[in-house]
Amino acid sequence: MSDDALRPMARTRLYEQVVERLRSHVADGGLRAGDRLPPERELAQRLGVSRASVRQAIVVLEVQGLVEVRHGGGTYLVGDSLDAEPVERLMERRRRLPDVLEAREALETKLAELAAERRTEDDLTAIAAALDHMEREIAGGGHGVEGDRLFHAAVTAAAHSALLAEFMRSIAEQIAESRTESLRQPGRPARSLAQHRAIQEAIAAGRPGPAATAMRRHVRTVAKVRLLSWDPS
């Protein structure tokens, strides 16, 4: 018998059970985006758990952008389901995210600076097309994830640095995680689009310093996510 077979058995945390019950409640009740969940006190009574466990479950759902907590106004569904990510995976992303954001700031700030120096008319066209795509996504009720990806890819291409582009490709999966995490923050898609426009303008004007500053400001905004303020303990 291998040692791995005798590893400690995982125990489901009580608040994870609450999350699963809430998911079933939303699915069975046919609740939709904008609908309100029962108050914490009622949920605790009906589930036979403490309000602290209910509160922990709500925080986990809020971190994932599945609910919006309006102080003094209750908890509301953001989408039509509560298909939550497993807590262990959420904790792993929380551990990894600061390093990813640090790398993004270092790489993308330099890429924006180089793009302002080296961009061609084709590069500017690609950047503008990416922002138009993002704007359409947001107008249609989306988060603008694909437009965001296209924009940063176009800036990377405009820098005409093969090695920096390779570095970006090497962490593409982690960047995608940080992109999704950021854009599901309330009000973030429109703010990111505005920051992208500022970066675009500096690159188009051939101003390396302002382009780098605008990109740094943008990536630091990306870093402001609910996940990093969550205390798993």
Rank of each mutant, 00 (worst) to 15 (best):
A33N: 05
S192H: 14
M1E: 15
A176L: 11
S50L: 06
H143N: 14
E16A: 08
A212T: 10
G142D: 06
S178M: 03
S2T: 15
E85Y: 11
V222M: 06
R217T: 14
E166G: 06
R220V: 00
R226W: 02
G73I: 07
T120L: 03
L124C: 07
E102T: 13
S81I: 12
R23K: 01
P39R: 11
A153F: 04
E113K: 07
E173S: 13
Q200A: 15
E108M: 09
V26Q: 08
A126H: 12
Q56T: 12
T109G: 12
G147L: 00
H196L: 04
A223R: 05
V26L: 03
G209I: 13
G140M: 04
A52C: 05
M9S: 15
R179C: 08
A27I: 07
G144L: 10
L183C: 05
A84C: 03
R96D: 13
V87R: 14
R93T: 12
T180E: 15
L14T: 11
T156N: 11
S50V: 03
S161N: 14
G141E: 05
L82M: 10
P210D: 03
A214E: 04
R191I: 01
Q17A: 05
P208V: 04
K224R: 12
Q17R: 12
L227F: 06
E173R: 14
G79S: 07
S229N: 00
A211C: 04
E108H: 09
L31V: 02
A44G: 04
Q195A: 14
R179S: 02
R226T: 10
G34E: 07
F151C: 01
A5S: 14
G34P: 05
A44F: 03
A212R: 15
D132R: 15
A44Q: 07
H143I: 13
D123V: 07
M9E: 14
V87P: 00
P189R: 09
L66I: 04
S53Y: 09
W230P: 01
A204G: 02
L37F: 07
E88C: 12
A5F: 15
M1N: 15
A205P: 09
G29C: 06
I138E: 05
L114I: 10
A162E: 06
L131P: 06
P232K: 00
S2I: 13
A5Y: 14
R23M: 06
A223K: 08
R55H: 13
A223F: 02
A172G: 03
I138H: 08
L31N: 01
D99Q: 14
R149K: 12
R46Q: 05
L150V: 10
S2C: 11
D148T: 13
A212I: 06
R188L: 08
L14H: 03
D3L: 15
R21L: 11
A157E: 11
M91L: 09
A214K: 10
I175R: 15
V219A: 08
D132W: 03
